[in-house]
Design a protein around this nucleic acid. Structure first.
Length: 203
DNA sequence: GGTAGGATGGGCT
DNA sequence: GCCCATCCTACCC
């Protein structure tokens, strides 16, 4: 899926990138490269979690110890535990004070693949390494220790790919939620085999 | 190919 | 006490 030339990485996404409407950031993160230490993967699936009427968002009931990061400055990681077992990585969006974040749901692994496989013994194929929010954090070694971390510097960052490419993007409802279950807030690179699962396109 | 059910613990009412 | 932004295994076509 990815040529050797494309594995060369570009600039780290800066805070301005994240300080925008959540939906724009979610779309624009597709094709970018998530890096944590020696491991890296191309982001192929994201979901936007908004403020306001979006009751699926953790921020929907206001600021708590857990949700404080989502209201904080953009360009930071929000990592939480789901179902008592798995951790999910979000990137905080919008100007400081406004809630919003993007759930990173799937990656096409490009660097540190051996390392990722060691962390994901259940994965039988490359396609299963990081094709889901819980799988991705396991493979990349991202834990709640990274909650609140600045993703514009340090070990955990997002970079431009070496070669920019025009992407086809499909919009679908978000996965695994009860509230606002039909809102068009999931973004995928449709032909990419590392997407977590197929769901009918809306547009 | 497909899905039902269980593991497991924090957050919040 | 209930609700989960999930994943894996077993089992069934």
């Amino acid at each position: 899926m990815v040529s050797a030339a494309e594995m060369r990485l570009g600039q780290i996404l800066n805070r301005e990138f994240y300080a925008r409407p959540t939906v724009e950031v979610a779309r624009d993160l597709l094709g970018k490269v998530l890096v944590n230490g020696v491991t890296a993967g191309i982001i192929v699936e994201t979901e936007a979690y908004l403020g306001g009427e979006d009751l699926a968002s953790h921020s929907a009931h206001g600021i708590t110890d857990r949700t404080r990061v989502i209201f904080g400055p953009p360009g930071h990681a929000y990592v939480y535990l789901v179902y008592g077992m798995y951790e999910c990585l979000n990137l905080v969006t919008e100007p400081e004070g406004r809630p919003g974040c993007v759930l990173v749901r799937a990656l096409e692994p490009i660097r540190g693949i051996e390392r990722m496989m060691g962390r994901r013994p259940a994965a039988r194929r490359l396609q299963d390494l990081a094709s889901g929010p819980g799988k991705l954090t396991l493979a990349m070694g991202i834990t709640r220790a990274a909650n609140g971390a600045d993703v514009t510097r340090g070990a955990l960052v997002v970079r431009e790919p070496g070669k920019r490419r025009r992407l086809r993007i499909t919009v679908t409802p978000r996965i695994g939620i009860r509230h606002c279950a039909d809102w068009p807030l999931r973004f995928i690179i449709p032909e990419n085999p590392y997407v977590s699962r197929v769901k009918p396109a809306l547009f």
